[in-house]
Design a protein around this nucleic acid. Structure first.
Lengths: 260, 260
DNA sequence: GGCCGCAATAACAACTTCGTAACAACTTAG
DNA sequence: CTAAGTTGTTACGAAGTTGTTATTGCGGCC
């Protein structure tokens, strides 16, 4: 499914039903607003433009865009406050936010980034640079607490309530195990080394031993094993672990043949 | 332990056992390099600084940092080429890269971002802004591990997941066998001698016997033979092995089937 | 057809890596 | 303040992988 999307996005917008990404623009000035909307739409994005943060909030509540392009000084609320409010809301915490301001200077930039914005641009932004920066943001996964519920196979993880459901049955897990499971469920497929998992789950630069991952994986498998789902976390010898929703056969070479 | 952690992080880096993240700086100018290294280390990061891309490449091969801070015009290679090279390598494709250049202007920025950089800054960068931008990058998960699949005939190798798909069936293989198969699938057609295969797959200067290749080829054929695909690795008498996606026209070729 | 040499196969041993259990330290709840 | 729960570490046994070697089978050449 993700692959199909990638193919489509490479082809550019196709019949308007598939775009490189959904962008919500918040810009007070009607002229700028229309200019940016047009340029980005031309670049293959699906763009919606509104004039103020309240309209943006309403629209986000209805459907979360892939990226929010926000004027730093819109009419009704200062952009920074809006960013902070969005970052507090677990529902949209993962949203990519690019702030734009008329003021240059270190102070503004630092304030914007520390408020939680992913990038800060000084207006006027050249159209091509704007598009390039938007694409750079969209290359990265939003992740990190996007939706409240992530599903994989029979598993359904409610990140807000910190509860894992297997079918309809709730399963209680420790916070750390939940974080590990959340990461794995958000990134099913690829293999992650122990150091990668430590970096992503425990935080970069964390000083925990690599065997700790083994133990937590065991605890997860133990919890999942109650429902015969322990196979969903696979061990890749000498590399690490991976999450999967389809069991893989292991036609290895442990065959026993009687001697001649 | 956790109390120790809190103390360490409050004190900043101490004995390098706990940091906000690992940063690798590539900067030609020794003065700038030391300045940035000091400022970021002061900010709680674990920083390593080198002068050129080759040193950086060697260090990344040893351990992948959380973020790469790259001078756009280092001595031995242009920064853009280095970024493109890193983005092509599936091993480090997810690495966060921030480019820095002395030149301002839309062209440079667009080129940097399109090459695959996550951000482009114009030097001199105020220390606080640099730290804020680095933190903004590190807030996002790197992920997006290169999920490229190499296809050949009915075979499809997911290098990120380290899984071979035969049709839709996932098949698990050992790391070494996977490396051999990956090399063969990437270079279908030509014949490779055993010493060549050892050099490419095991690494140059590896001291493994030539018969070892035979054994691994057998193990691959055995795994493929489950699906009657053992013929895809052909033996060329007195020369070596070659991969093919079309059955050989040579008569009298026996099918390899695994026991049981 | 017979000989020489190479490749295929099987079995093996050594090594590394992983799973498991017990334990200690810390945090949180009551 | 006590007790329960969670988390990270360590040690040991189990499992898997990998390279080598010995034996068998096949191919090519005279």
């Amino acid at each position: 499914m993700c692959r199909a999307r990638a193919v489509f996005s490479r082809l550019g917008e196709l019949a308007g039903c598939m775009a490189d990404g959904n962008i919500l623009i918040v810009e007070n000035d009607p002229e700028f607003r229309e200019l940016m909307r047009f340029n980005l739409a031309q670049g293959g994005f699906e763009v919606v433009a509104v004039a103020d943060c309240l309209s943006a909030r309403a629209r986000i509540a209805r459907s979360v865009p892939d990226l929010l392009l926000l004027d730093a000084a819109p009419r009704d609320m200062t952009g920074l406050q809006f960013v902070e409010a969005l970052r507090r809301d677990p529902e949209v915490r993962g949203l990519r936010i690019v702030l734009m301001g008329r003021m240059n200077g270190e102070e503004r930039t630092v304030a914007a980034l520390e408020a939680g914005a992913d990038d800060y641009l000084v207006k006027p932004v050249p159209p091509r640079e704007l598009e390039a920066r938007v694409r750079a943001q969209l290359r990265r996964p939003p992740a990190e607490s996007g939706r409240d519920r992530i599903g994989l196979g029979a598993l359904s993880l409610d990140t807000a309530a910190m509860i894992l459901y297997v079918g309809e049955r709730p399963v209680r897990l420790g916070p750390q195990e939940l974080k590990l499971l959340e990461f794995l469920m958000r990134n099913p497929g690829p293999v992650f080394s122990r150091s990668q998992l430590i970096s992503f789950v425990w935080g970069p630069g964390s000083a925990v031993g690599e065997r700790t991952v083994d133990v937590h994986v065991r605890r997860l498998r133990q919890a999942l094993g109650q429902f015969d789902l322990g196979w969903m976390i696979e061990t890749v010898y000498r590399v690490g672990y991976r999450m999967t929703d389809t069991p893989s056969s292991r036609p290895g070479r442990p065959e026993i043949k009687p001697p001649v």
